[in-house]
Every structure is written in structure tokens, then in C-alpha cells.
């Protein structure tokens, strides 16, 4: 028996909006510690890892570990039927072949339930080691989204370079080239507006912009984003989900031959 009650149901709606274009089908894993997902895109270049910790739910009952295969397009269709202020409860029986999403309006005068069929999904689970990254950049998520969007009008790939001077995003294409440099700044008024660079050694990596643009669909989940980079390792693009968890995207770098 599984019953997860999320008061801020809009978070789940936003999570689905953030990942449904990257991943078609995925297994949601439910355990004592939380509700999680790890899935790769069809080309296995990008991976999304979601964690919603159990203590972030108003009510969290998970009698035994459960993996539920869901089509994210269909799940998104159902969650779109929830109001932004609705409380969402996810319910499933052990060994059942469906999951139920229950939506309650804040004033409790409207209750809906949507049942969705589950599916069997064979997916590879990757072991992602805890790593000390060479450079970690924290910046406003809207700024990162803007840079990715702007640069993708010029080129297909971006070089992200972190040095003591700041973080530089560079691209080039048929019509020309572009560089955007963000320097470390400290905002007294609002920590969300800060760009903070922690660097052990300079790092420069090249990525396909279309994946980064896809990741920025998570911008609505958090005012800040963190980019963690090490030489010749996938970048981690992390959006914290208020008080409850995170969504992390991993993207393999393009490597010079």
C-alpha cells in the first residue's frame, strides 16, 4: 500500500513539465526515504534524477519498496487536471497495475481521482558516485535559462568554462559566435540573485545546447540552479525543490577527438 499526500501539488505538476520532454517512460521508485526517479533520455546522453524526500510529504505511507512504471506524457495529462493550489495524493496497491492521483481543492469542496495504468519498463540504473567537483557555479535559474536560449539561436553546442574570473558560456555557428561571462557577485538583498563560483581548478567542457535547454524547463521549480563540473565528466545541473528534494540533470560532455 502506497499513499503519498503532497500539499503543494503544483510541485509535482512542475516536475512533470520539467522532465516529460526528455524522458518518455520511467520507473518511479518509492521507498521509506522518498519518491524518486532515475531515467535517461533515448540517446543515453542525458539523465534525470528526481528525489522527493518522504519528510516533505504531509502524509507518507510506503509499506514496501515499490517501482511504478509510468508513461510521463500520460501522467502529465492527468496532473494537468489538478488545480495549481490542489493537494495531490498518489495511491497504489502493492502489486497493482494502476496508480491513482487524487486532487483536492484547498477548500476541500472538490475531490477528483484519476486512475492511470502502470507499465513494465526495463531501464538501466546507473550508479552515480559522490564526486568532488572541480568547479561549482550557483546562479539564478532564469539567467541560466536565458543564456542557454540565447546561445542556441547562434550555435548547437556551448563551451562552459569556469575560471577565477567567472563562468563563460561560448558558442559559434554559421552566422557568428557569442560569449557570455557571468562574474561572481554578491547580492545583499537577495541570495537568489547571486552568482557564486567555487573553484578548485579551472574546467572547460562542451555540451549540446538542446539538452541544456530541455533542463531549463525546471526553472519554475527553483530560483537558483547549480552547475557542478569536473574535467571530462558529465555536468550536473541541479534545481532544488523547496524543502522537499531536488531534480538533477546529468549531461555527458562532448569530447574532443
Amino acid at each position: 500500500m502506497l499513499e503519498l499526500r503532497l500539499v503543494q501539488g503544483s510541485l509535482l505538476k512542475k516536475v512533470l513539465d520539467a522532465i516529460k520532454d526528455l524522458v518518455t517512460d520511467a520507473n518511479f521508485d518509492c521507498s521509506e526515504s522518498g519518491f524518486s526517479l532515475q531515467a535517461m533520455d533515448s540517446s543515453h546522453v542525458a539523465l534525470v534524477a528526481l528525489l522527493l524526500r518522504s519528510d516533505g510529504f504531509e502524509h507518507y505511507r510506503c509499506d514496501r519498496n515499490l517501482s511504478m512504471g509510468m508513461n510521463l506524457t500520460n501522467m502529465s495529462k492527468m496532473l494537468k487536471c489538478a488545480g495549481n493550489d490542489d493537494i495531490i495524493t498518489i495511491k497504489a496497491d502493492d502489486g497493482g497495475d494502476s496508480v491513482t492521483f487524487m486532487f483536492e481543492s484547498p477548500s476541500q469542496d472538490k475531490v477528483s481521482d484519476f486512475e492511470m495504468k502502470l507499465m513494465d519498463i526495463d531501464s538501466e540504473h546507473l550508479g552515480i558516485p559522490e564526486t568532488e567537483y572541480h568547479a561549482i557555479v550557483k546562479m539564478p535559474s532564469a539567467e541560466f535559462a536565458r543564456i542557454c536560449r540565447d546561445l542556441s539561436t547562434i550555435g548547437d553546442t556551448v563551451v562552459i568554462s569556469v575560471s577565477k574570473d567567472g563562468v563563460k558560456f561560448s558558442t559559434s555557428g554559421d552566422i557568428g559566435s557569442a560569449n557570455v561571462v557571468c562574474r561572481q557577485n554578491n547580492s545583499v538583498d537577495n541570495k537568489d540573485n547571486e552568482t557564486v563560483i567555487e573553484m578548485n581548478e579551472p574546467v572547460s567542457l562542451t555540451f549540446a545546447l538542446r539538452y541544456l535547454n530541455s533542463f531549463t524547463k525546471a526553472t519554475t521549480l527553483s530560483n537558483t540552479v547549480t552547475l557542478s563540473m569536473s574535467k571530462e565528466l558529465p555536468v550536473v545541473v541541479e534545481y532544488k525543490i523547496a524543502e522537499i528534494g531536488h531534480i538533477r540533470f546529468y549531461l555527458a560532455p562532448k569530447i574532443e577527438d
Binding site: I128, Y250, D257
Partner: peptide
């Protein structure tokens, strides 16, 4: 002159 590896090249399959 770039090649794109899959994530399995970096992280072990469990």
C-alpha cells in the same frame, strides 16, 4: 572534431 559518449561511459550500470 567532437564525439558524444553515452552516460554509460562515465557511470557504471547497476
Amino acid at each position: 572534431p567532437f564525439r558524444q559518449e553515452g552516460l554509460e561511459q562515465f557511470f557504471p550500470i547497476q
